[in-house]
């Protein structure tokens, strides 16, 4: 565990908390893409298949349970909670998530560390995580007014990815044999997807204006 990895995990945790605050306290999920949330639930379900079989640390198991629990409960709230679901921008959130799931699955069948069920699922979860933010970014671009919590949610997710890249550089330099091409390339692609959002986020922050993405 290094400072980049820990900050990355904490930023990731913070992003989930921001979303839960929005849903629990404000009882609104306006501007949040259900498609992205469903993809994240699938990402965690397929990546953490080993949660009960290979123990790494209490920290690791706890975080996995938090990410699994939070992603599924967010999906449940957006789909079934009688107040929250009314604020869901269903007509705007039209990204077809199956178009992301299928190519990622085929890629995982071709590119994996070992051709076993667990390893293929693990590779699939990494490829899917890399593109899971796309429905959310599309929704943000369509939404006229992006509220602060939604903007912060996406910003924190992007920051988490950027910190993970620093973590990999640190681990590569300090740990012998730390080479994980699948993780690195999909992680890099994922971070690049945030570049455009980051640009407009910092612009609005610098000029003290409301975040607005150009169409």
């Amino acid at each position: 565990m290094n400072i980049f990895r820990l900050s990355g995990d904490m930023t990731h945790l913070a992003s989930v908390l921001v979303l839960l605050v929005k849903i629990h306290t404000i009882k609104s999920c306006a501007g949040v893409s259900l498609k992205t949330q469903e993809l994240y639930a699938l990402v965690f379900a397929t990546r953490y298949l080993d949660i009960f079989t290979s123990y790494i640390s209490l920290y690791n198991t706890t975080m996995k349970l938090i990410f699994l629990g939070s992603s599924f409960s967010i999906v449940w709230y957006m789909r079934h909670h009688k107040i929250v679901r009314r604020s869901y921008d269903k007509d705007q959130d039209t990204f077809r998530h199956y178009f992301l799931i299928l190519p990622c699955f085929l890629l995982a069948l071709l590119l994996n560390e070992k051709f076993t069920f667990k390893e293929v699922m693990w590779a699939f979860s990494l490829y899917l995580e890399a593109v899971a933010i796309l429905p959310q970014l599309v929704l943000l671009q369509r939404t006229r007014n992006i509220d602060n919590l939604t903007g912060q949610y996406v910003f924190l997710l992007g920051a988490y990815r950027a910190l993970y890249i620093l973590n990999w550089i640190y681990r590569y330099l300090t740990e012998p044999h730390f080479v994980h091409w699948i993780t690195w390339i999909s992680g890099l692609v994922q971070t690049l997807l945030y570049a455009d959002f980051f640009y407009y986020y910092f612009q609005s922050w610098k000029n003290n204006q409301k975040l607005h993405l150009p169409a």
């Binding site: 080993d50 690791n60 560390e113 044999h177 080479v179 993780t183």
Partner: peptide, 10 residues
């Protein structure tokens, strides 16, 4: 080079 180590990242 693939290391058969448990995946310790989230």
């Amino acid at each position: 080079c693939y290391q058969d180590t448990p995946k310790d990242e989230l």
